[in-house]
Write a protein that binds this DNA or RNA. Structure first.
Lengths: 403, 403
DNA sequence: GAGCCTTACTTCACGGCGTGATCTAACTGG
DNA sequence: CCAGTTAGATCACGCCGTGAAGTAAGGCTC
């Protein structure tokens, strides 16, 4: 109830810059004329603000298009090379650091394997900072808008004014308890830092560039070894009071049901997560990881093996029921199923999931929702991570000084 | 992505008026000095805007307070009598219409019983319009900011510019399928109409005047014959894509579990709703309604009757598990348990609910949440309904012409 | 190819905004 | 009664978006 909305007239200009920049960025080359129609700003303001953005190099003219016998419309776009972004995917097996241009085309990347499943914070920090040095070699740091980092855990953002020092990460699975990741990374780089849960960054990527495009309310359901979700409310990632919203994997689907690796019983993850499925099946090749095990399970089901078929049918039933809960609670326009296991299972399970969701959800909200597979693949975590500084950049109206 | 944020400089003033008005309304008599500190506006602007609001009669000076040897601070408040509000509770057994002043003090009320459980839309509309005539007798319609209506069902808001004509209600329980309530009421009154789900209006009341005060992220869980929820995100009711968000009663807690009156199995409502509890217990006095039946069940448990004790223990266990899901998914600061059955059961079940929620929820988000009972009682639906036009009024910065 | 029409974009006067410096009001303490 | 102190009012300033008027840049007609 304190600093709500914009205060001074200068903030109005920031807002206008932001709206125009966003529109040009996402709606590709576009003319001033169309910008006026779709944003509602007057032609005078459009002209004024675009001139400012052109002078800042944040927009450039690129060709023109005829207009019914009148003066042709000049097309505008955001020059992809105007600035750079870094996206980091901190996984349990490796750290991947990638450098992007503004169009999110990958310019360089660096992989650092982790030897202990990500438990050692020092090793992770060293991998991130080392990767940064590699991908930024020969790049002017002043052109880098920031570093976005997706981590497997709950991220407390702390005070945004503290330059990242307040960022703290909690993760039960890799044993991080209140790790001050922001402060640790700040010691090795002066670039702006943006940290969020990896599922949320992947969700952000699907929303901007994948199956979520155009939706204002959506849930991206992520299935890997475990299960997570990224809830999008009004176009923005929903965080809740302390950024842990969307922890979907341990939703209670069956009180007193199958034992989950979290210790409780009847969690969604115990029925749909790759780790649980492979373990429950029990016939994966010895020494295979979750990915290979799940592939073997799918293969067995395709061959018609009873146990595998039943296990996957049950997974679809439970997954559909859990999605129905999301539909009832969040009333989204779209549910997107992603994550490596989700994409692997999707083609086989999707019809069953849809049937189950239809049976378990309330009719009205269910009729408003479509359930689809993600289109970006699991490697989009880095893209989504890079979208964090990009989002800040667009929100700020292209303020390069603030960084 | 179209009309985001405010456009012209005049909207800035509307925003300032709104912020100041809200602050004075909720934080009681308050001085310009304090307003400046808490809103961040400059003293000049405060002076300017409050002068405007004083001239409009939306603020009045009321006494003063000493200030360390200097000029005393003059206190400001919103004159409760400046305008009126109407709140309507459309229940399954009756329609209650109440007239309030700006402080939400009830000035008049009118109850109209329904003979068929609310199925006949015509009867409901007649009751609402009749009640309006009664409570507004002798009141200048120009001083009434609007009529807020809480209904048992999903409310599609339609186009806000359509003057309420777009408001459509869906309710499986009372057999309303796409009832154009807005258009039907518009035929009988020209006052501004605001319609929302009754659970959401009660939630709004708890947030503003009850157990939810001060929280920005909260869930008000409502237990009556059925179970519903009102999700508050960033201080506002969360609606989702088509206003049906928060349908919590049919969350799947036990796939294949106890049969629910919605036809599915294992819904939360089948374990916690008053109707299900009474039916499952099976020893309520013949002819008793849900309320009397639940009271009897509670009495039996207090007397130590085994079946009743076990049923309530199980209800607490399932209720806690469902609340844990809310905690994981929404990460609220506070969970408030309300509704007539929730308030009846609360004193006995709360400890068990808290234990169950602690066991089922993830540690981190659970540590951020408190679970409490509502403080307003079930009759607050009309108050919450009246809060709908009030909220619009405050948002608009006290624009009486817009109505 | 010259004039004219159409459409896209630019320029500019205007009313309005919040800020911050400065001024006035109101009360206390000696 | 007068200085000290704090609350609130006033006002010049820089900036904003609007909308009307002006300019640029094409096609079309004769």
């Amino acid at each position: 109830m304190t600093a709500r909305g914009k205060r001074t007239v200068r903030d109005l200009r920031r807002g206008s810059r932001s709206i125009l920049l966003r529109r040009v960025y996402f709606d590709g080359p576009i003319s001033r004329q169309e910008l006026g129609q779709s944003t509602g700003l007057s032609a005078g303001s459009i002209s004024n603000v675009t001139a400012e953005l052109l002078a800042d190099g944040l927009l450039e003219e690129c060709g023109s298009v005829e207009s019914d016998g009148g003066r042709p419309r000049i097309l505008l776009r955001v020059p992809p090379g105007r600035a750079r972004l870094v996206g980091v995917d901190v996984g349990e097996t490796q750290v991947r650091v990638a450098l992007f241009d503004l169009a999110l085309t990958e310019l360089a990347a660096s992989d650092h394997p982790l030897t202990d499943g990500g438990h050692d914070v020092g090793q992770v920090v060293a991998a991130v900072l080392g990767g940064l040095d590699e991908v930024l070699a020969g790049t002017d740091p002043a052109t880098v808008l920031g570093v976005g980092i997706g981590v497997p855990g709950i991220v407390e953002q702390g005070d945004p004014a503290a330059d990242g020092h307040g960022i703290v990460v909690h993760s039960q699975t890799i044993g991080w308890d209140a790790v001050p990741l922001g402060r640790l990374l700040r010691a090795g780089t002066s670039l702006p830092l943006y940290v969020d849960n990896g599922a949320k960054t992947l969700g952000q990527a699907e929303m901007w560039f994948g199956a979520g495009r155009g939706a204002r309310h959506a849930v991206i359901a992520l299935v890997g070894s475990g299960v997570g979700a990224c809830v999008i409310v009004d176009g923005a990632r929903f965080r809740g009071a302390t950024s842990s919203a969307g922890e979907w994997g341990h939703t209670r689907l069956h009180v007193g049901g199958r034992r989950c690796r979290c210790g409780a019983r009847g969690c969604l993850e115990a029925y749909v997560g790759a780790a649980a499925l492979v373990k429950c099946w029990g016939r994966a090749p010895a020494g295979a990881d979750d990915k290979a095990g799940l592939a073997a399970l799918l293969g067995a089901a395709t061959d018609g093996q009873q146990a595998a078929v039943e296990l996957l049918d049950e997974a679809a039933e439970y997954f559909g029921a859990a999605i129905a809960d999301l539909v009832n609670l969040f009333n989204p326009e779209r549910i997107v199923i992603g994550g490596w296991a989700g994409l692997l299972l999707g083609p086989r399970l999707l019809p069953g999931i849809r049937r189950s969701a239809a049976r378990h959800a309330l009719r009205f909200p269910h009729a408003q929702t479509s359930i689809e597979l993600g289109t970006l693949g699991p490697d989009a975590v880095t893209v989504g991570a890079a979208a964090l500084p990009l989002s800040h950049f667009l929100d700020s109206g292209g303020d390069l000084t603030q960084r």
